[in-house]
Design a protein around this nucleic acid. Structure first.
Lengths: 110, 110
DNA sequence: GAGCTTGTTCGACTCTTGTCGAACAACGGT
DNA sequence: ACCGTTGTTCGACAAGAGTCGAACAAGCTC
């Protein structure tokens, strides 16, 4: 955390899902902005980071995408000047069958 | 908050589940202590607050039970000097089918 | 009623989290 | 090479969350 020796290239750090505590997965989903991102992502396919404009700054958006990525919910790959994000749905469904469905099916009474 | 007009009786405040934001439900589950409480509760039946001794003080335990209750996950009723807590499983399963199962089935690799 | 047991509430403290603007980095186009 | 676009990272800040001990309340039992 305090290491400033930035060597110029760092991979997105996408953990093995089985190594992520359940509480981290749930915590990642327990935010309104992130839930909207996941909802958008659940449509399928890849989307650039910039497409998730939910009323927060790009710094905040980047932060939320990092949280999702480090919780094992998304994968990111560079594509030109953009970064394409996608849901790790199959892995999620295998490890937590029904979780995503339950969360996404619930169409926001709040 | 500075009002000292405590009238002497306050109900446990158990909200209608449909009025609770999804993020609050997820946030309630996104804590290790609370998840252990829910796991214990998922065995079925009612348990007194004191039975959830997961290495925290009774003040902290009381706090966590309050979070669960206000997120609509549990119900509490007074029974003598104790308070019996139970999971609102049927309601949960109806509103978020598969959620609890998915979370509870995952037997803690972390 | 005195005392014990069981929980809740009240500060207080610390750590984490969401948020932003600004600076930086990487890439693509002109 | 310069600039614009797209993201990330860096402080900084405010708000929230988890933790505790101590004080309080309510109910039993003797």
């Amino acid at each position: 955390m305090s290491n400033n020796g930035y060597t110029g290239h760092m991979e997105p750090h996408e953990p093995d899902l089985t190594a992520v505590p359940v509480t981290s997965v749930l915590a990642a989903l327990a935010d309104d902005v992130r839930l909207q991102i996941v909802r958008a992502l659940s449509e399928g396919g890849e989307s650039p980071c910039g497409s998730f404009d939910f009323g927060v700054s790009k710094a905040t958006r980047s932060h939320h995408l990092k949280v999702l990525r480090e919780a094992g919910l998304t994968r990111t790959r560079a594509a030109g000047t953009s970064r394409l994000v996608r849901l790790r749905r199959d892995e999620l469904d295998k490890l937590y069958p029904g979780l995503l469905d339950a969360v996404l099916a619930h169409h926001r009474p709040a």
